[in-house]
Computed example of a mutant assay.
Amino acid sequence: MEKEICTIRIASNNCRRDSYTFYENGRIKRFCVQENLSPNITEWLDRSELSEQSKDRLIKHCPEELKEKIMLILDYP
C-alpha cells in the first residue's frame, strides 16, 4: 500500500475545492469538488501535469515540516 505524506487543499477556478494527496512513491492524487451538479473528479497526476502556478500554491499551503519532501516530488526549484 502506498504511504500517504499529506493532503493539501487549495481553492481553484475550476473547482470549489481541490485536494492534492502526496505519496511516498511520488504519486499525486487530485480530488476536485465541482460546482453545482457536476460530478466530482478524482485523478492521478504526474508532476509534469501541474502548472508552475499550481506548484507555487501547493508549496504555499504545505505544512512547513513537509515542504522539502513535497518540493522534491514536485521537482520544485
Rank of each mutant, 00 (worst) to 15 (best):
Gln53Ala: 10
Ser54Glu: 14
Ser51Asn: 03
Leu72Arg: 14
Ile10Cys: 01
Ile5Asn: 03
Ser54Tyr: 02
Lys55Met: 05
Ile41Cys: 02
Ile59Phe: 07
Asn36Met: 14
Ile10Asn: 01
Asn40Trp: 03
Cys32Leu: 15
Glu35His: 13
Ile73Phe: 04
Glu4His: 13
Gly26Ile: 01
Ala11Cys: 10
Ser51Val: 07
Ile59Lys: 05
Arg57Met: 15
Pro63Leu: 12
Lys55Leu: 03
Leu66Glu: 11
Cys62Glu: 09
Thr21Gly: 02
Gln53Asn: 02
Lys69Gln: 15
Thr42Tyr: 04
Ser12Leu: 00
Lys69Glu: 15
Arg30Val: 07
Glu4Cys: 11
Lys55Tyr: 02
Val33Pro: 01
Lys60Asp: 13
Arg17Met: 13
Glu2Asp: 15
Asn25Cys: 05
Arg17Gln: 12
Leu58Gln: 00
Asp46Tyr: 09
Ile10Tyr: 00
Leu37Trp: 14
Leu72Gly: 10
Ile41Trp: 03
Tyr20Pro: 01
Pro39Gln: 12
Leu37Glu: 11
Lys55Ile: 00
Glu24Gln: 15
Leu72Gln: 15
Lys69Val: 09
Ser19Arg: 12
Leu50Val: 05
Tyr20Gly: 03
Lys55Cys: 00
Asn40Met: 06
Asp75Gly: 14
Ala11Tyr: 07
Pro77Thr: 02
Pro63Arg: 09
Pro63Asp: 07
Lys3Gly: 00
Lys60Leu: 14
Glu43Arg: 03
Thr21Leu: 03
Gln34Val: 09
Tyr23Thr: 05
Lys67Tyr: 07
Glu52Asn: 12
Glu64Leu: 15
Glu24Ala: 14
Asp46His: 14
Leu72Ala: 10
Lys29Val: 11
Pro63Ala: 09
Tyr23Asn: 08
Phe22Ile: 01
Asp46Thr: 11
Ser38Ala: 12
Leu66Met: 15
Arg47Tyr: 13
Lys29Asp: 00
Arg17Pro: 03
Pro77Cys: 06
Trp44Asn: 06
Leu45Trp: 04
Lys60Ile: 11
Asn14Tyr: 01
Asn25Thr: 09
Ile10Met: 04
Glu49Asp: 14
Asn36Gln: 14
Leu72Glu: 14
Thr21Tyr: 05
Asn36Ile: 12
Asp75Glu: 15
Glu35Pro: 10
Ser12Glu: 06
Asn36Cys: 12
Arg57Thr: 10
Leu37Arg: 09
Cys15Lys: 07
Arg16Ile: 10
Ile59Cys: 08
Tyr20Glu: 01
Leu37Phe: 12
Glu49Cys: 02
Leu58Trp: 00
Ile73Lys: 02
Thr42Arg: 14
Gln34Ser: 14
Pro63Cys: 10
Phe31Ser: 06
Leu45Lys: 09
Ser48Glu: 07
Ser19Phe: 03
Glu2Met: 15
Arg27Gln: 07
